[in-house]
């Protein structure tokens, strides 16, 4: 028998979360496999407040209980996000898996989290004490380590409304379906009046957390394409020097080569 609470609304969920030692459970696609003994779950998959995608003045707000299948069908979800989540596992998993679960799992291989990193997304965390808005980059502290209080739940992902239109995305898995990322890459690019206003690159599945280096990105901000071209080698070298990758099922060398190849391809795609 699975022990757990199945609250009907958000408030009830937050109260249970505060009062008991529970593991938040959304789609269960990882937790079911883990099948941990003696665990009490907090089932969040029936809470309407967590299952919405809403657009406000600044953000596209994706509820943590929204499944990948639902997001793929939603007109407000950016194409870059759709591309990444459509490569997750297989249909059955995408029908159950959620944004909250992908985050809560604390893995650098999480395909939706990569997009949240590259887009500078924020997360809305809730507890009985109120809400906290944190940058996803600060939320992810390392492998399985999250800045999430024992009374908090992940409520929403806040993606910026604009700026994700020009992107480059690649997922390298061990096979074409049901594949955990071995290297994943997402880059977004924005140019205004002949100058680069945003160039962001994030690397998934190659270290304990998703990697993004804002200081290296800054090298090209405000530059023209021609100026950026001249700095391309130096720029790539900066990444190469910074990225200390770990070995997983594939070697650190393989990961590094692929990361650099994809970074170069990203720059080329936008004329750099």
């Amino acid at each position: 028998m699975v022990n757990g609470y199945a609250p009907k609304c958000l408030q009830e969920a937050l109260e249970i979360r505060a009062a008991h030692d529970v593991v938040p459970y959304a789609g269960g696609t990882d937790l079911m496999v883990e099948n941990r003994p003696n665990v009490t779950y907090l089932f969040l998959n029936k809470i309407p407040e967590l299952k919405q995608v809403v657009v406000d003045d600044n953000y596209i707000r994706i509820g943590s209980g929204v499944t990948f299948t639902e997001a793929i069908a939603n007109e407000n979800v950016p194409q870059l996000m759709k591309e990444a989540i459509s490569r997750i596992a297989a249909c059955a998993i995408r029908n159950a898996g959620t944004f909250g679960g992908n985050l809560g799992n604390g893995s650098a291989k999480a395909d939706s989290v990569l997009i949240e990193f590259v887009s500078g997304a924020k997360l809305r965390l809730l507890s009985v004490k109120g809400e906290r808005i944190v940058d996803v980059e600060k939320f992810y502290l390392g492998r399985k380590k999250l800045d999430l209080g024992s009374d908090e739940i992940i409520a929403e992902v806040l993606l910026p409304k604009t700026g994700l239109e020009n992107y480059y995305y690649e997922k390298v898995g061990g096979r074409n379906a049901l594949a955990i990322s071995r290297v994943s890459f997402a880059g977004v690019f924005e140019e205004k009046d002949g100058k680069i206003v945003n160039i962001a690159a994030a690397f998934g599945a190659v270290a304990d957390t998703v990697l993004r280096y804002r200081d290296i990105e800054a090298m090209l901000i405000g530059k023209t394409i021609e100026e950026a071209k001249a700095m391309k080698a130096e720029y790539i070298q900066a990444y190469s020097d910074r990225m200390v990758l770990t070995r997983g099922r594939v070697s650190a060398e393989y990961r590094k080569t692929v990361c650099m190849n994809l970074l170069g391809e990203f720059l080329s795609k936008f004329g750099i």
Binding site: A90, G174, R175, N176, A177, I180
Partner: peptide, 9 residues
């Protein structure tokens, strides 16, 4: 982790 091919491969 031990990867047999799927129909998509």
């Amino acid at each position: 982790d031990y990867l047999i091919p799927t129909s998509k491969d």
